[in-house]
């Protein structure tokens, strides 16, 4: 019934991208997002698209898996598109109805934002699809560890994140089960008015919260029983180490970012 949530869902495969160090992938995703919002002009979008397609191809993850994440943002996508179309001021007016005007700039802006949002989601789900949640948080912890100097609890934050990610599938499963149990008792989650549908969520949400708190409690107990006391003096079984492939990865990213900056400065034309 559920299971449409791709975020935090790892797609097991053995590809170049899967084998990359999580730090490279994290920095890579950030670089990609920055580049995505940096580029200007037709050529810029072509370059970003090619880069994205190249990484998708290298990851061997089926394209359909990435599109699954789209469902969640369709609503946001529509809203931004509508706002951009109607509220962007511009000189070339295409349509004018009552107080609403559609300008050429508005349409272009809407298309640009839509493309950016779609690429953003695909880019970040590419990271979560090719990296297990655990190695992802390991990577983040390593990247942010310099912040420990100014007393940011990096390890604790990373631990919280990996626990949260770890529990997404568990809670999804749990939701599915409770939903089915209530449907078996005649509950209806799909039809009825908006208010009614919200009311109908109560039989789902109450048991879900109860079990989430119970699980949190059990997990805290289990961690204490194994003497967990935060990041101080904690070592790793598999410390992160860069390989040659990771260095190549950084090089590719640097070139990509440089190209994006150059295209921002020199690549005006067209859009």
């Amino acid at each position: 019934m559920l299971g449409e949530i791709t975020l935090g869902q790892y797609y097991p495969a053995d590809s170049v991208i899967h084998r990359l160090d999580p730090r490279v992938k994290f920095v890579g995703t950030l670089t990609f997002i920055v580049a995505l919002f940096l580029v200007k002009g037709f050529l810029g979008y072509v370059m970003v698209t090619l880069f994205l397609l190249g990484v998708i191809k290298a990851s061997t993850v089926p394209f359909g898996m990435m599109l699954r994440g789209m469902k969640a943002i369709i609503f946001i996508l529509l809203i931004t598109a509508v706002f951009n179309v109607f509220l962007t001021p511009g000189e070339i007016v295409l349509v004018k109805v009552w107080k609403l005007t559609i300008t050429r700039e508005g349409v272009l802006q809407a298309v640009r934002m839509a493309v950016r949002l779609i690429y953003l989601v695909i880019g970040s789900s590419l990271m979560t699809l090719t990296t297990t949640p655990n190695s992802l948080t390991d990577g983040m912890e390593a990247l942010f560890s310099p912040l420990k100097v100014i007393h940011v609890p990096v390890h604790e934050i990373a631990m919280m994140m990996s626990i949260a990610l770890r529990f997404i599938p568990i809670l999804t499963e749990e939701t599915d089960r409770i939903m089915k149990a209530q449907i078996a008792r005649g509950a209806d989650f799909k039809t009825g008015s908006f208010i009614n549908r919200i009311k109908n969520m109560v039989p789902l949400l109450v048991p879900l919260f109860v079990s989430a708190f119970q699980r949190a409690n059990d997990l805290a107990m289990a961690m204490e029983a194994r003497c967990y006391h935060g990041g101080e003096g904690r070592t790793r079984m598999k410390p992160l180490r860069y390989t040659a492939a990771d260095r190549v990865g950084y090089l590719v990213l640097a070139l990509f970012l440089a190209a994006a900056i150059l295209l921002r400065i020199f690549g005006g034309g067209w859009i």
Binding site: E174, I178, I183, P207, S211
Partner: peptide, 17 residues
């Protein structure tokens, strides 16, 4: 049908609300 064929899930107490 679901009222005719009742299904009690595993750990059904988790569905009390």
């Amino acid at each position: 049908l679901r009222t005719q064929v009742g299904l009690v899930f595993q750990y059904p107490e988790h569905q009390l609300f």
